[in-house]
Simulated scan of single mutants.
Amino acid sequence: MQKTRRRLAAALCALVAGLGATAAIAQSYPSKPVKLVVPYPPGGPTDIVARVIAQRLQTQTGQPFVVENLPGAGGNTGAAAVARAAPDGYTLLVATTAHAINPSLFKNLSYQFGKDFAPITQLTSGPLVVVVNPALPARTVPELIALAKAKPGDLNFASSGNGQSTHLAGELFNATAGTRIRHVPYKGSAPALTDTMAGQTQLMFDTMLSAMPHVKGGKLRAIAVTSAQRSPAAPDLPTVAESLPGFEAIAWNGLLAPANTPREVLAKLSTELRTAMEQPEVRERFEAQGFAAAWTAPEAFAGFIHAEIDKWAKVVQVSGATIE
C-alpha cells in the first residue's frame, strides 16, 4: 500500500512539475528569435504576408521573427523541414492552399500535412481572378463555358505550376462546368501571365496581386473572381458562383507549428496573431494584395485544413493529376 502511495505521489509530483514547466515555457515564450519558414521564393504573395506578420510580431513581443525562404517541390521542401523541427514554437510554417492539395497530388511525401503539424491560425483568405486574353470572345463566365463547350479541348489555361491553386482552380472549373479546357503548367505566375497576354494560352486563374495590374493595363480581361462573395478589391467583378452555384476556390495562408508543440505556446501565438491582424496597417497591407485578414482559433483552423484536404482530393481525383 505504501509503495502504491509513493508511486502515486511521485507521479503526481511529476505531473505538477511538468505542468509548471510548460506554463513557465509559455509565459516566457518567445525568449529567442522565431523562424517563419516560407516554402516559396522571396517576393511572392506568401513571402509578403509572412514579412508583414513577422514585423508586427517582433514589435509586439520584442523578439525577432525571421523569415526564411526554403522553396522547392511545390512547397514541400519547406514544409518537410518544419515537420522535422523541434516542437518548441521557434520554427513555424507559413502554409498555403497548395499544402492542402499536395497530399493527393504527390505520391511520396516525406511528411503528412494533416498529422505532422499543429495549426495555429489562418492568416489570409482571398479569391483568384479569372483573366482571359483580350482577343478571346468571352466577357462572362457563361460565354466562356459556351465557347469551351463549342470547341472542346481547343482552349487552354495557364497555371503557375502543377498542383498550385492556380492549377486546381481550373480543374475545379472544368469539373463544375463540364468543360475540357486544357492545363498548361509554367514555373511561376509571371511566365504564365506573359504567355496568356501573348495569346499562347487563353486564360488563367491567378492571384489578384499578380493579375490585376495587367488587367488595369489592358493586357488582360478579368471576368470573375473565384470566392463565394464578391471581392472588396474588385466589387464590380462577379463571382464564378453567380453562374456556377457552389463554385469556390480561395487562396489562403496559415501558420502552423510542428506537431506536439505545447498547447500553451500555440495559444500564446494565436493570441499575438489575433492582435496583429486587428491592426489597421496589417489589414491594409493584406488588402493591397487582394487578401483579407482571416484569424481563426487553432481548433477552427484545424477543421478548415481537413475540409480543404478533402475538397481538393476530390478535384485531383477527377482531374487525374499526379506528380511523382
Rank of each mutant, 00 (worst) to 15 (best):
R5L: 15
R6C: 11
A9W: 13
Y29N: 01
S31K: 03
V37N: 09
V37L: 12
Y40S: 15
P45A: 15
T46F: 09
V52S: 00
Q55C: 02
G62A: 11
P64H: 14
F65L: 09
P71W: 15
G72F: 13
A73V: 07
A80S: 14
A81E: 12
V82W: 01
D88P: 00
D88C: 01
D88Q: 06
T97D: 12
N102C: 01
L105W: 07
L109G: 11
S110A: 14
S110L: 08
Y111I: 06
A118I: 02
I120M: 05
S125F: 04
V129Y: 06
V130R: 04
V131A: 10
V131K: 03
P134N: 07
A138E: 13
T140M: 07
L144G: 10
L144I: 10
L144N: 07
K149D: 04
G153D: 01
G153S: 00
S160F: 01
G161I: 05
G161R: 02
N162R: 04
N162D: 05
A175L: 13
A177D: 09
A177S: 10
I181R: 08
Y186T: 06
A198W: 01
G199L: 06
Q200K: 14
L203N: 03
A211N: 08
A211L: 02
H214E: 05
V215R: 01
K216A: 12
R221E: 11
A222W: 14
I223A: 06
A228K: 15
Q229K: 15
A233P: 04
D236F: 04
D236N: 13
P238R: 06
T239G: 12
V240F: 14
L244F: 14
F247M: 14
L255F: 10
P258C: 08
T261C: 08
R263H: 13
L266A: 05
A267K: 03
T271S: 12
E272R: 09
E278C: 00
R283E: 10
Q289Y: 06
A293C: 04
A300H: 12
A302G: 04
E308A: 10
W312H: 12
K314N: 13
A321C: 11
